[in-house]
Structure formats: C-alpha cells, structure tokens
Design a protein around this nucleic acid. Structure first.
Lengths: 211, 211
DNA sequence: TTGCTTATTGGTCGCACACTCAATAACGTT
DNA sequence: AACGTTATTGAGTGTGCGACCAATAAGCAA
C-alpha cells in the first residue's frame, strides 16, 4: 500500500509517453465522456502527476481533441474496416449496418453526441469533429462507389446517398443516452431500409447472413 | 455607476420570482447552452445574488432541467403550434418542416444536442428530455393522425411514421454546431421527402406556398 | 565515471462552481 | 404605526479545474 504512495519515477521516451497518454485519454473519452478527460484524471490512470500531461499537452483542449480523434478513428476501423476489397460491397455494408446496433454502438453514439456538443465551445475539438466526419463519410462513400462500379449498387449520386445513410444513423444514435430499446422494427431498421432503397437493393438484402 | 453597485433590494412574490428565474434560465440555455445556466449567471442576469437562485432551486440541476423543459416546450409551440384544427394538416406539416431550417432552428438543434449529451450525467435532466421527446412526438403524431382521418395522409402506422420523420430531423440537426450549410437539396430536404413518401403524398406536396 | 539534457515531480495560484447559513429588510397584516 | 413573515443578502466553505514553475532524477553521451 505504501509502495503505491511513493512511486518510482519512470522515464519514457516522449513518443511512447505521448502515445500512452493519448490512448488512455481516448479510452476515457469513449467510456465516460470527453469532460472526464482532465489532466488529473489521465495522470491518475497512468500513475503520473498531472503536470506531466501538461508537459505533453500545453493546452488541455488539445488533449481532448486528440482523444476524440483517436477514439473516433479507432471505432471507424472497427465498424467499417478498409479491409481487402475481396469482400463484396453488399456484405461489407451489411456488416457495417449490423454493427450500428447494440450497447457497443451506443457508446460510439454517445461519443459523437458528446463531441458535437462540446465542439460548440472548443475550436480545436470542432476541427477534429469535422475531420472525423469527413473520414467516416469518405470511408462509406468509397464503399458505395465500389459497389456501384461492381454493379451491386445503383444510385445516381453516391455522395448524396452516403450522407443520407449517415443522417439516418445520426438520427437513430441521437437517443443513445435515453431509450434506445423498444423501437419498432420499421424504426430500428431505418438505416438498412434507407440504404436498400437508395442503392436499388431488394428489401432485406442488407440484413443477410453477414454478421 | 455607483448606483448599480449598491442595488436596492426588490422583493417579489415567490411565483413571480420563480417564473422570472426560469424564463431567463431558459433564454440562457437556448442562446448559450445549458452549462451556462449557473447560479451566478442567472443571478447576474436578474440583478440578484446567487444565493437567491439557490433559495428557489435548492439543487442547481433542477434549475437546468427546468430551463430545458421551458425552452423546449416553448420552441415546440413556435414550430408546431397546437392551433385551431381549421388549418389543413398538409399545410400545418409543411409549415412545421419549413421552420426546421435556418439559423433559428439551428439554435434548437443545439439545445437538443446539449440536453441529450448532458442528460448522460444528470438524471433530472434526463427525465425532462424524455418528457419533451414525448411531447414533440405526441404533437406531431396527433397532426398526422388528423391528416389520416381527413384523408390527406395515408400511412399504415402513424406512430412509426412520426418517429421516422423525427429521426431524420434529429439526424439533420446533429451537425448544428458545424457545417449546416452547403448541403445538396436531396439531403437538406430529407425530412420533407421522408414525410411525403411515408404519408403517401406527391413529391413536393410539403414544399408548397405555406410559410 | 562524469556530465548534460530533459522527462518528471511537487507545489502553488487563480478561477468558477454549488452549497450553507445567519443577518437583514421589504411588505402584508393587524 | 408596530409586528411578523420571509424574500433577499453577504460572507464563507469546499471542490475540481487548467496553468505555471522551480527543483529533481533518469538515462544517454562523452
């Protein structure tokens, strides 16, 4: 017990320490919210003094922005990996939509709501939000374009269709802090239905056996 | 200048004072955000000591919840007044959707994002959010039901259609703190298009001459 | 081994917040 | 005109935050 009170001073390379800080900040952001990303909190989690965090992030706002960026881009990779283009676009899209439901996705929705709200007051975060929105949109759009090229999807404007799907997902995610359950299927599956309609797919084509 | 330093003590009836407090709190919430609803800030706006606000709201969280409730219900009345059922449902719905665009509606979207996020940490606010969501849903649903009865709308499930429209509106409003402009028409009009499709209306039927 | 760079500490400062409570004065009642 | 109720003040407490900085020690280089 007394050993934890007096901790030995461990000295790491700036790159390693910085990465460590950003990673735990991202984890805190995802699990508890961006306002919990404080110098003290991250320092505690790392067994380090708050001043050290300040040393790497002279402005705390910068750390918050970085935490969001890291968390959001990590979740995008989990939700819709760039992956090898071997898998069919229909399956990839079905997989993505399938992952936009459940407790784990609720955490992501919460993070987005959190970031979109906080970006009202924090310019650095606002930039990161715009950046991540572009990244998410880009990832989905290139999937859709690939599907169009392969003849699996049919849409006059892949860019518009992409945003339409994302708008529905944002709308569904808006309630991640309240109800989330007990939605009729016609609502819970709105993203699927929208994608199928806008991409010229048969009804249910995106609810298939893909995870 | 010295007159403002030493202010005369004005004594109001509890009901009047409380209403005054809630009104300014709601205004602050709408214009600057729920985290700006603090004892000090509301006290300053009213030319009164913070302790007085505490006297009426022993818990500050209660005031924040009340501020949101008042602001949200006021905006609902402005957006979709219960009004006399003389006006046709098509016109009322068109009016409502027409008001969901522009800088003024952005402020409302910001408030919703704010409240949905903050309700993650504040139970009292969470209850108010649920209450207001029910109020908004109820108002729109009864409009739709009336339209169905009058034969203007056609939908198998007014309740589901209501939520579908609201989901799209939430999705569009999610970006109120960032881009909002420069959206292609097919996106900006998503709520209109969704409503027209789900209610069996002709394309453009909700974009008419109604304000 | 000696020395230098700098990662890391420990402590401090100022600010904003909610909350508490005894003292005070405005106002209706008598 | 005196009284009593209570709305309102003033002052103080404790907490958590970011920012700042001199002192310290870890580890690399000479």
């Amino acid at each position: 017990m007394s050993s934890s009170v007096q901790r030995p001073r461990v000295r790491k390379s700036p790159a390693a320490r910085r990465a460590e800080i950003v990673d735990t900040a991202a984890a805190v952001a995802l699990a508890e919210g961006l306002e919990c990303v404080t110098l003290r909190r991250i320092g505690d989690d790392l067994g380090v003094r708050p001043g050290l965090i300040s040393h790497y992030f002279p402005s705390a706002e910068e750390l918050v922005a970085e935490a969001f960026g890291t968390a959001a881009s990590g979740e995008l990779d989990a939700l819709l990996p760039e992956g090898p283009p071997g898998i069919s676009p229909v399956r990839r899209l079905a997989g993505f939509l399938g992952r936009t439901t459940g407790e784990e996705y609720d955490a992501i929705s919460r993070l987005w709501i959190n970031a979109r709200h906080l970006s009202r007051y924090r310019p650095a975060l606002r930039d990161r939000v715009a950046e991540q929105e572009a990244a998410w949109r880009g990832r989905l759009e290139s999937l859709i374009r690939e599907g169009v090229e392969r003849g699996e999807f049919r849409t006059p404007d892949p860019s518009v269709t992409t945003v339409q799907i994302l708008v529905v997902l944002d709308g569904l995610g808006a309630h991640a802090n309240t109800d989330t359950s007990g939605r009729p299927a016609a609502v819970a599956r709105m993203a699927h239905i929208t994608a199928e309609r806008e991409l010229g797919l048969a009804e249910g084509a995106l609810s298939g056996p893909s995870a």
